[in-house]
Design a protein around this nucleic acid. Sequence first.
DNA 1: CAAGTCAGCGCAATCGATGAAGCAAGATTG
DNA 2: CAATCTTGCTTCATCGATTGCGCTGACTTG
Lengths: 341, 341
Amino acid sequence: MSTRNRQSKKTTIYDIAELASTSASAVSAVLNGTWKKRRISATLAEKVTRIAEEQGYAVNMQASLLRREKSRIIGMIVPKYDNRYFGSIVETFEAMARERGLFPVITCTQRDPELEVEAARELVSYQVEWLVATGATDPDRITALCAAAGVRSLNLDLPGARAPSVISDNYGGAHALTRRIIANAKRRHGRAAPLIFIGGRGSDHNTRERVRGFRSALAGEGLEADDRFILTCGYAAEKSETALQRFAESGLEAPVGMFVNSTISLEGVMRWVIRSGLGGPQAPAMGCFDWDPFVALLGDGIEMVRQNVPAMLNAVFSIIDRGEAPQALIEIPPLHGDAQN
Amino acid sequence: MSTRNRQSKKTTIYDIAELASTSASAVSAVLNGTWKKRRISATLAEKVTRIAEEQGYAVNMQASLLRREKSRIIGMIVPKYDNRYFGSIVETFEAMARERGLFPVITCTQRDPELEVEAARELVSYQVEWLVATGATDPDRITALCAAAGVRSLNLDLPGARAPSVISDNYGGAHALTRRIIANAKRRHGRAAPLIFIGGRGSDHNTRERVRGFRSALAGEGLEADDRFILTCGYAAEKSETALQRFAESGLEAPVGMFVNSTISLEGVMRWVIRSGLGGPQAPAMGCFDWDPFVALLGDGIEMVRQNVPAMLNAVFSIIDRGEAPQALIEIPPLHGDAQN
DNA sequence: CAAGTCAGCGCAATCGATGAAGCAAGATTG
DNA sequence: CAATCTTGCTTCATCGATTGCGCTGACTTG
């Protein structure tokens, strides 16, 4: 049963000091754990603790952080929460931050460049010690903003030129994935061409690298990827759906396989595949650069690449723990197959 | 090109005041937009703005919020980011908070009761004006904690007794879902029994209500649900997988249909179904209380209930906008079928 | 020209927590 | 018993931004 301060202001250390007939600084020392160093008696410590509990006291972080030198807040911006990859990044990030006594503040930017910058600016105002920019469309702008404010930053998932970046080995992952798609296409259709690459933004590094891996795997078969089969139409499900629709209407040869650049693109692709009655044995051999548990159950033998989120965040926190930022691009090999969580 | 303060402390309004040969209070007024009220000349305002930009100045929120009366921070705790339901809750929450000029701080608690309380306490320390407890295992404990600190709170997804709660109409949704499962079971197997209910915690309100809806739909068919067919084994995929394994070994009659309590439970259920070779036409009729785009494509005609996240968050923010909290339980009817995002 | 008005700004208190420095008793030492 | 330590506090400045109040000088008015 706690005695509420009648809906008025919050309890402060001054209120508690008065109730305990002591000083605010003694209360502060007791409540932040430095009381032994400051030679406060156990008797007083206990009394203060009890009263604080009775009053439902909670420290005012704004005041506390203002006074301290370090905020112990760590920020992250993330594009979306609508897929397992980013979901798992965020969960892992929070857990690893907490392990270190840091307070994680994450904010979602809907893949909107303006919101990204706005959110980064806001996090800087909250005195974050580090800012992790995940999948940012313009990472260098965020790095510059942080640098100007004296905040250390790093990039995750999509690399920037001006801050350390931790990303997947997109080229290698795409190469291996494409080889698996090719193998399946040969088994099902007797040939490995034509293949479609669909989803993602032609302007982002990951998509470019994945296209490069895609092309090089094709080249390994003596094939060449026609630009009209590279549909980097954006990430949203609707976009890949309409891109495929347009492709079908273009009269180009039907693909025997598809490299899909993300699960969210795969949503649109699958809708189109099913609408067009392309399921079953004559279905194109599919591969998806990202992992989803239900896709694994979809039954059409959709190949997946699972980005190694724990390893990526280990790399992120190893930079953070080390304190200083090596100007580096760290590429983490993704996992393959149906590896479970 | 911005002049960096050589990696030292951050720029403050005092630094800018000195550079602009004016006072900190004028700088503050200019930068927070109150300068017209305070009759600062446009000339000075412009000069200060320019210098602030050159210095890469960012307001220290800790200091600013300490002085102000309201924080404009709004907190949310959420169990997981591994499914579309919570992902969509978080995205919508952030967007709606921003629309209102509030700063959303969300933190993930891994369904761990201790972490929930810890996280809530932390958010209270950050002076949140409201705390939204999403899917909390012990909502009333969080409500009490907030009340003691003078923070308003409300529950989302799982209700509490001591704060307004916005949840889905679990009974109605489960009843309708069960009826669809029954119809499919009859079509496929010629009978509607036995049905299994699997996933969720017997201790939480939603699961209880869904079991109630399940039972009442069965009762509508003149059937009764045997307790041994109600497997509320928790939410994790592994738990439902092993629960089904154990059920299969128990020698009880094989079910003709299954009510699965969440997509994450469905993951485990589907793994078991496939491992046991129960796919195809003889598959049990499945229904899932929650929505996932790939489940819709799974092909076995899995029925889904999609909780109406936008409507739920409209209800949440209508309470927040109104400022005061009606002591109420608001039930939002879920959507049915393959309704798209 | 005295009195009043007003634009334009500065001063200083304040928010709550922190911690270095200091101070008053009692305990210990030589 | 005086000198020195130790214990257990208190005092006060500080973090950076905000804001009520007041000051100055230019301008207007009767």
